[in-house]
Amino acid sequence: MALWITVGQMLSLSLWALLRLRLGGREMVRQVYETGNRSILFVGITMAFIGMIGVYELASTMEAVLPEYSTLGAATLQGLTREMGPIMAGLLLATRVGTGMAAEIGSMQVSDQIDAMKLCSVDPVELLVLPRLFASSIASLGLAALGTTIAFFSGMAVAWFGFSILPDTFMSLRFVVTGDLIMGISKALVFGFTVPLVSCACGFQASGGSEGVGKATTRAVVLSSFLVIVEDALITYIGEVLQ
């Protein structure tokens, strides 16, 4: 319960800061680099494999059912834009970035650094959380776009070499509509906001030395991954209703 109160407090403070355009300036830029640039290799390699596996499975099924591949590329791109790109970026952020945030803030919490900030008139949410929230949202959007592109091209390579589907045939945008793009962007932004929000809250709740930091880190990755999945379902449902 205390965790969700912390999440609620941080959320209201963040929205208030957003309204006043207090985004953390230089620290936010640093966090975009830490969160985004440093995740590129991890996200890129993971998404390349996901693209290859996804296209291989989809093409195998099409081979058995339709024997026709003209829609393979378009269906792959639509799925990546709406679902796999943002959700994988969200989950990978939770794994790589959320754990780091929970551990860093948790360590500061158990070593009294957070209390020291309060005692020095420094608001720890404004200093530590806000730049991470906005940086992570930007990074998540970039990683989702990059991941989608890499997965699409790696899938195209599998389609070409494994199923003799020419790149001209595979590279089709005909299923992707504006609604898919809006859904993908919305998901990436929401996931990018959720992961640091929950992870930082877990860090703030840490207590009891290094064991407490470990527990906070585990809790952060479990909760933020779970929330990414739940939010994905909700946004998909809302998107379908609106369309």
């Binding site: 009294d112 209390d115 005692l119 420094v122 608001d123 200093l127």
Partner: peptide
């Protein structure tokens, strides 16, 4: 003002930045 038993300095900042942070907010 309360000074903790363990030095609660912020590791990611230099000594001057640690002190400046407090001055800036205060």
């Amino acid at each position: 003002v309360y000074v903790f038993q363990h030095p609660t300095l912020f590791d990611s900042m230099s000594v001057a930045e640690n002190v400046a942070l407090v001055v800036k907010y205060h």
